[in-house]
Design a protein around this nucleic acid. Structure first.
Lengths: 206, 206, 206, 206
DNA sequence: CATGAATGAGCCTTCATTCAT
DNA sequence: GATGAATGAAGGCTCATTCAT
């Protein structure tokens, strides 16, 4: 996870705090705006009001910044998803809760989600980012299982092409991070609710 | 655009042919796989079996390759969209045709669509890519108008949040380019049909 | 011009100091020896004992090095010329002082003068070097006016072809920078005096 | 001399004719305008209405073009100078004839003279341009001898610093190539006469 | 004679990274 | 904690040159 394991923070993979957290937030914003590859550490440093070299007091490398950003996001995401999994709700309710949780994570980690969306494929080839592939697998299993349970119990369409629907839902939800800004008039929960409704019931008149 | 203005190709901005087209296809694949910024011209050249410098016999710059790829795609896309616009169909049918046309373009220009998806924001700031913003505007108008017509005539849900639905549909359709491969068992039209059905009618059981 | 605007150097466009000044001196020597275009930044860096890329910590570009070299020289030159202009001396004395000042500048800025001589035409087309044309115009006006005043008051030959004489003098003086080395036996003022004498009185026996 | 020694031109170092001569003239102009190093063969080819590669049918290399241009000029120059040398005239007359001959060569070979002026130092290090140094030596000997003879017989100033005067004259005469255009109102001989007069008798009133 | 296409070396520049201060 | 200066590897691009057609 790229945690430095300092003695000050006894919790494993403690969330970064203070200056470190600010710098990560800055880096995440820039990565999200310009893309990981097109971002230079100088841009991050400029935005943080320091020189490029000074970043290396806080982080090992540009890569480790991305690592910490992404793993922090995925850590929180799975915390939330696990709570839903263990709640043992019906498929449709599970589905709605998963969408809501995803939007909640976008609220907390919007830049990280954008980075995940755009860069996961490229970064996943690096050993240190092995957890990305692992997370994707778990993600697919969770959503696919939910869809299949829903088809089985009749709450989702009979004959639904589950792999296709999975990709549809996955992309549909995450890509929202590109435009989603929680400072709008609607609460995050409202947007998530409307989104889930569109996916579940379609946009056609019934 | 490097149009040769030869008498053989009366169309403006004639589609590149021969070696040039091959190289563009190669470049588009690499851009789509690795991202524009992370792609080196050497990678493109390697894949094309030539040296990096040799690319510059055919193209002015890396940027101009991206330009030609994107403008070629958008050119074809609008050809198709315009045919649908002028057909004057009912909202739902228009919607279905637009989704089908989008998938048809993905079949022809899959890498270009991926590039468009990932890099449009970054490239749009360059003057030469001004047409990207212009295309986005037209795109939004077309889809938004279709959604509004559908709400008005009762074929889409009353009270549909059109701007939200627009973004939902836009992302949902284009992001499919990342995984869509026409060489599967289903025809492009079939996939498009199922996709449109999910968006229109939802994945829930009626 | 990279002026730091520090409170220590009240003069506008403070002359570069320290490392920066050393590097500029090195660059100027190489440009003068090999020509701007034939000079590679690697050669400059080698001579300065660093790697080519390291130059870019100090300067924006090869072009900006030439810029700083030339504008520094012209700045000092006009400082000197202005003092002579405002002294309001008779034409012949003005002429002698201008020649002396020109040689004095060659002593301080010899490589810059050589660069100016050889590259001004080529560089002047770049917008950032617009001041070269401006300086040339002022230069011509100053010398031409001096020649004309001398013809008018009888200290220069009646019927002197002033435009021709101007070009003669201009080239004659500046081209000396190619061979002039102040470390010779004669002082700069002596060489300048002999030079002025040749131009004014000719090399023939009276 | 880079002559191809074709059987059609039995004369040694035959002056290039036809297409070849045209191309050399074009190349000389571009070299003179932009400098040897800053000139690309593509620019020359463009100006000649052909592709860069096509030049290599006519010439071995860019270097050999410069070679042929410079050696052609020096060949003609020494033809003229030798005629003056063998005429055995008095120093002042020799001087005047040398200046006149120099201007005559500028009329025929103006771009070559400019190239010689700017690039001789840089090119002289290449083995094939060994004749440049040789020519410079002869040149210095001829002019220096003339000056010394003039001092000895009293036609030039007693105490004239001959090496200084030589450099003065050399630069003064050749640098005129930069601006000299024979299409002006004055004939070449007239300009040369005025020039010689300025050098010999000065610009001051007697 | 000239073109079209490619080569290979080298150029200017960028950038992640290091390290003494 | 941060700066200033440098490194070294690469990256995009240029250009003289070659050669089959």
């Amino acid at each position: 996870m790229g945690s430095t394991g300092s003695t000050v923070t006894p919790k494993r993979t403690a969330a970064p705090t203070g200056r470190r957290a600010e710098l990560l937030a800055t880096a995440a914003e820039v990565f999200a705006e310009q893309g990981y590859s097109a971002t230079t550490v100088r841009t991050i440093a400029d935005r943080a009001g320091m020189l490029a070299g000074s970043l290396y007091y806080h982080f090992d490398s540009k890569e480790s910044m991305a690592d910490e950003i992404l793993s922090g996001f995925l850590h929180d995401l799975w915390d939330g998803y696990e709570r839903i999994e263990t709640a043992g709700l019906a498929p449709r309710a599970t589905f709605e809760r998963l969408v809501a949780e995803s939007f909640a994570q976008m609220e907390r980690h919007r830049p990280a989600v954008v980075i995940y969306q755009k860069e996961a494929r490229g970064l996943a080839s690096l050993p240190r980012f092995g957890y990305l592939a692992e997370s994707q697998r778990r993600f697919r299993e969770l959503w696919t299982a939910t869809l299949e349970r829903g088809v089985a119990d009749g709450s989702f369409r009979p004959g639904l092409d589950v792999p296709l629907a999975y990709r549809f839902v996955r992309d549909t939800v995450w890509v929202a991070a590109v435009w989603f800004r929680p400072d709008g008039r609607k609460s995050t929960a409202e947007v998530a609710g409307q989104y889930a409704s569109m996916v579940l019931d379609g946009i056609s008149a019934p």
